[in-house]
Write a protein that binds this DNA or RNA. Structure first.
Length: 471
DNA sequence: ATTGCGCAGTGATGAAAGCT
DNA sequence: AGCTTTCATCACTGCGCAAT
């Protein structure tokens, strides 16, 4: 019980803050310099008498001296040690505490080693992905593909571009746009302010802008929300190209391809920000408890747009719930992804077949709710639903996607979808090493499809609970 | 039950070596 | 020269254990 206190590093920081030498502080504390030195190097524990003297000399509260730092270290260690790479099975908390207390420096180094490992494997996965995508030569030379590069940039920005959000909000209030009526508002705005007329020819092109004639053609197949989004996109390009170029310029892309892909991405971001302005949207999302369908009707946006927007609410100071967002096609390919969470998307292959984004195709248009626990031990509440892109002709069949949205169960209380889920009673832990073909745990290497249901547990509400999805 | 002894662990120190 | 680190050492305490 009587854990020994090793606060050497903390003491050293305190001392250096006060610009005292060891000798000087030793005199103040009435101990020998060598003893103090050993304490600072964690070769000697802090005794109560010395601790009291320190508290007196530095005029700090005892609790603040003893706590804080170490508990964070312990928490980080715990998280890291849960990674299967460490051989599975957590280390008892008491042992972690001992380790962090006795040799915080070692603990920190283990953590930074782990961090480096994560980065490396991330890079390796990217590389593997590139190699298998048939453009091996470039990848082998370490050349990033434009799309990858842009995606990394968005990831690096946490998928949040405050300046675009602010610009969009400012435009909405300046023009007095009525939310939920953005289609009509933007048609009017484009005509009044930019002398651009909107036409709807029956052509496959989603959006075509002709600057010389001042016309914007939109596909007849687009829904109203889709049109509003394309209009907003065009507004971004017309009215805020300077701002967009500035952001693109700041990203230091290697190629023009990457720059133009990024420009499109930013214009899309702006479109989302214009149709669903940050402040109003975040507020509504909270008060409607993230009811996607209600948000859709308030803002006249599609299911996918709302989900995507929800994953971008990371404004410092007024962050929303951190969501991941994915879109997959029927073959299981991830066609869009973003994560404001610690959620790790698999980099290669399909995702775990047990994930409800795949199940969604079997129950079109129905919102599926699932609790899933990742190999890192974090549990997520996962929503999934199919969305359809109209083709509008026999030669252009509809395309179906499944959209997935989710967050850690810690936030589940803020979601209507958690109703009925007894989060306090998650189904008991499921054995490690289920034979998922994706997770690649040591005892789970078989690539065959797992017998669906064999390692799935179901809670009282008949909602499936998937133990491990993918690494 | 008490006493004495050896021993290991702990808190602390001083001398000397190592750094800048 | 002053500060920091290492190392050997010491006093003290508590514990196990055998002798009394």
């Amino acid at each position: 019980m009587g854990r020994k206190l090793f606060l050497g590093y903390k003491l050293r920081r305190l001392r250096e803050q006060k610009k005292l030498s060891q000798a000087a502080l030793a005199a103040l504390l009435e101990v020998s310099p060598s003893y103090l030195n050993q304490i600072e190097n964690n070769q000697r524990p802090l005794t109560v008498t010395v601790l009291l003297k320190i508290a007196r000399v530095f005029d700090v509260e005892l609790p603040s001296l003893v706590e804080d730092d170490e508990s964070r270290l312990v928490a980080d260690l715990k998280e890291a040690m849960n990674d299967p790479v460490f051989g599975g099975g957590g280390i008892p908390l008491s042992e972690l505490r001992n380790a962090a207390g006795a040799s915080p420096e070692l603990a920190k180094r283990v953590l930074s080693l782990y961090q480096a490992y994560q980065q490396q494997s991330e890079r390796l996965h990217t590389l593997t992905e590139n190699l298998s995508s048939g453009e091996g030569e470039a990848a082998r030379q370490g050349v990033h593909f434009p799309y990858e590069e842009v995606r990394d940039f968005f990831y690096y920005c946490n998928n949040y571009f405050g300046r675009l959000d602010e610009a969009a909000e400012e435009l909405v209030s300046r023009e007095g746009f009525r939310l939920g009526e953005m289609h009509n508002e933007l048609v009017r705005y484009l005509k009044d302010r930019h002398d651009v007329r909107v036409r709807i020819p029956d052509e496959p092109a989603m959006r075509r802008f002709d600057a010389s004639h001042g016309t914007l053609e939109l596909s007849a197949q687009l829904s109203i929300s889709g049109r509003a989004f394309q209009l907003a996109h065009q507004v971004g390009l017309l009215a805020y190209h300077g701002l967009i170029d500035e952001i693109v310029g700041g990203a230091k892309f290697a190629s023009d391809d990457a720059r133009s892909i990024c420009r499109v991405g930013l214009a899309n971001y702006f479109a989302g920000a214009l149709v669903m302005p940050y402040g109003a949207f975040a507020e509504q999302a909270r008060s409607l408890r993230h009811d996607i369908e209600q948000l859709q009707s308030r803002f006249g946006a599609s299911f996918e747009q709302v989900c995507h927007r929800l994953s971008t609410l990371q404004r410092p100071g007024s962050r929303g719930v951190p969501f991941y967002f994915v879109r997959v096609d029927r073959a299981g390919n991830i066609t869009k992804r973003h994560s404001a969470t610690r959620f790790h998307f698999t980099r290669f292959g399909g995702a775990c077949p047990l994930w409800n984004v795949h199940e969604a195709f079997a129950q079109p248009s129905k919102i599926l709710v699932q609790l899933a626990r990742m190999p890192d031990g974090i549990a997520y509440i996962c929503l999934a639903r199919t969305v359809t892109k109209k083709g509008g002709a026999y030669s252009r069949p509809d395309r179906h996607f499944a959209v997935g949205l989710g967050c850690e169960t810690a936030y589940a209380g803020e979601l209507v979808y958690a109703g009925g889920l007894d989060l306090g009673h998650e189904p008991a832990a499921v054995p490690i090493g289920v034979n998922c073909r994706i997770c690649e745990r040591d005892d789970c290497r078989q690539r065959a499809f797992p017998p669906i249901g064999s390692h799935i547990t179901v809670d009282e509400n008949n909602r499936s609970f998937v133990p491990y999805l993918f690494a």
